[in-house]
Structure formats: C-alpha cells, structure tokens
Design a protein around this nucleic acid. Structure first.
Length: 367
DNA sequence: GCGACAG
DNA sequence: ATCTTGTCGC
C-alpha cells in the first residue's frame, strides 16, 4: 500500500522497541493470497491477527480499500454467511463472487463453509497477540502509589484525524500550571496512523501522535508532574488503557479521563460533592476508577500510573469544570485545538504534502 | 430493532 | 473518532 520512512516506534527504558504494524497493508496484502473461488470472513481475519474483537475494524479496512482492483475485498464476508457490504455496491460484490463459482442467493452465500479458505494460507501475522502481550508486560510495571502529592505542572492531550491515503493523526498537548490553570504552551504533532480503532488496543493507534506532541510541548514547561489522556487508565481488560501505557513508557504519573466505560460496572454508593456526584467503577472485584457526573455530563476517571484510584479522582475533581462543558477546562482544551487544526488542514490540504519527516511543528507551516 | 466494545 | 440526517427514548 503505502511505504514510508516515518518513525513509528513506541519505546522506553524497559528495553522495548515496538514497531507499530501497518495493519491496513497487512490485511489488504493478505487478500491477494485468497485463491479464486475461495472466501473468508471479517471474523476469521481478525482471529488470525490474534483477537476477534477487531472484526469490525477489518470491515472498516475493507470499506476504505484504496484499490479494490488490486485488493479483492469482495472475498471477505460476514461470519454468519451473509454477503456483507462493498464500497462499489453489494450487487457488484455478489457478481464478482458468482463469476468465481461462489453462489449467492440474495444476501446469503450458498454453502459458504465449503468456500472458506484455510486462513493460515493467508499468513497473517498475529500482531494483536504480540500487542496484547506487550500490554501485559507493561501493565506489570504500573504503580498505583501516588508519587507526588502536590501536582502543579500538567500536560493534557487529545487528537483528531484527517483521512487520506494514509490517515494523519493530529496530536495536541497543552501544558498548564494548575495553580492558576494558566496555559503555558501547546505542542502539536502530525503523525501517520497505521492502526484502525480497535477496542482495547487504542494506545497503538493514538500514542505515537500523543508522544509526538509531548516532545513538542516539553520546552514550555519547567517539569511535568502529571499527564492526562483521553481514555482509560487501569480500567482496561489487561489493566493498561492508553493513560497507563503512556505513564509507564514515559515514567510520568498519568490519569485517564474517558467519556464512557470500557469495562467494569458501577458498584457501590454515590458520593455527593457540591454540584457533582461520583460512584466507584468495579472490575474483577476491585475499584479501579470512578464515574463522575456533573450537569448531565459524565466522565470516567481511572489512574494511569503513579496515582492511587482516589488521588486520581480527587485531582481531576480539583480542576475548574465550567457548567456548560463536558469535562474540566484543561482537559477539553486540547480537543478544541485539535479540532480547529483539523479544519484548518482540511481547508489547506497542501499543508500535509511534505510529511516525509512524519512529525511537524507549527513552524513548518510558516517557514 | 437491541449485547457490549475507550477513541 | 468522523460523517450526516433529522430533531424522544427503553
């Protein structure tokens, strides 16, 4: 698909050097190994990659297939034997299959099991398995002991995406002095995205752009006491949401603030504090985070790294939270900036043309 | 019509 | 997350 010379690694002091796999290319190229008259399913591809949870993401990769003539995504159907979608119309998908001897009745494949390819023939690398193992390895290094009592210098993050031949992630980090919540500086990165969104694997999609903006914002802040990311901390099937992942590999105390629950359930009593309330979120019989509700807006707070569950919650609750906003002001700001930059880039697409370095700063625009 | 699934 | 239509929700 698209080759590039872009830096796309997540690494740390633990000796881990992990290259984010180009899942789009891996899956599209595997389609070329499906023999004439054979088919497979979104779920089987997902399973071969290491986790069936990616089935919808496989469908998304098919949907955005940049070259249906070269990558035969019409050979991929739903696991229940129904036809599934096709960017050029399901009639065309049906016709292409029939031409290879696969009978289609309405939206159903006749005897679809007989046409299934041996999925191991596609030689799909189990990249989701290795990502899961990496998450488990890093998760063992998460600390839930609050390292710093007085948190003053904080960076909050968010990103938006611009789609193209290769999706570009726009990472934004905002540095604050939380004593007066003054904005000290903004770091921005533009990074190609090689992974679709897959539940529980979010960090592998978003962290490269986040870390890029972190390195860009670092000069504006005397030190970093904490980072706050949009997503879960330890409230994750493997205890490693994006905030915990970022915290451990940067060795910076971190907190996750999400808009909805990924795993776990609300359990226990509500606590009322002023005009907001919160309740514990329990997973594996442990309180790993809190659901906070204020003026109909809800956020899920869980520690990332070097925070206790209660201290993570109390720190977030100490931040100014305007009545009409969905979350505290300093957490919302990077989202607003990323959205504005996205609109700007859509308006002037040439800004992203020379992206050979993979990361850019605002200076690149104004030289 | 419907299970749930951070962004 | 993004896109987009319609304009309630369990």
């Amino acid at each position: 698909m698209v080759s590039s010379v872009i830096i796309r690694y997540i690494f740390n002091e633990l000796g881990i050097l992990y290259e984010i796999p180009d899942l789009y290319s891996i899956v599209l190229q595997a389609l070329c190994r499906i023999p004439r008259g054979k088919i497979t399913t979104y779920r089987d591809i997902s399973k071969a990659l290491g986790d069936t949870i990616a089935a919808r993401a496989i469908g998304y990769i098919m949907k955005t297939n940049p070259c249906p003539d070269r990558y035969p995504c019409y050979k991929v159907i739903s696991s229940d034997g129904s036809l599934g979608g096709y960017s050029l119309g399901s009639e065309r998908k049906s016709m292409l299959l029939q031409k290879e001897g696969v009978k289609v009745m309405g939206q159903k494949i006749i005897d679809f099991e007989k046409h299934l390819v041996d999925i191991s023939d596609l030689r799909l690398p189990p990249v989701l398995l290795s990502m899961r193992r990496l998450q488990e390895f890093i998760s063992d290094r998460v600390s839930l002991i609050t390292e710093r009592k007085n948190i003053r210098f904080v960076v909050t993050f968010d990103l938006s995406f611009v789609d193209g031949p290769l999706d570009i992630g726009i990472g934004v980090g905002c540095a604050f002095d939380v004593d007066n919540e003054e904005l000290l500086g903004v770091g921005i990165s533009f990074v190609p995205v090689f992974m679709p969104y897959i539940p529980t694997y979010l960090a592998f999609r978003e962290l490269p752009a986040i870390l890029g903006s972190l390195s860009a914002v670092i000069e504006y802040i005397p030190r970093i006491d904490a980072i706050i990311l949009d997503g879960q901390g330890i409230l994750h099937p493997r205890g490693l949401g994006i905030a915990s992942h970022a915290g451990v590999i940067t060795n910076i105390p971190s907190i996750g603030v999400a808009k909805s629950i990924l795993v776990g359930r609300i359990s226990g009593k509500w606590t009322y504090r002023g005009d907001l309330k919160y309740a514990p979120v329990v997973y594996n019989n442990k309180v790993l985070g809190f659901l906070v509700i204020k003026n109909k807006h809800k956020i899920v707070v869980s520690p990332g790294h070097k925070f206790s569950v209660d201290d993570a919650r109390d720190f977030v609750l100490s931040l100014e939270w305007p009545r009409n906003e969905a979350e505290p002001r300093i957490i919302r700001l990077p989202h607003k900036i990323a959205s504005r930059i996205k609109e700007f880039v859509k308006k002037y697409p040439k800004l992203l043309e020379s992206r050979s370095k993979g990361q850019k700063s605002l200076d690149d625009f104004f030289l």
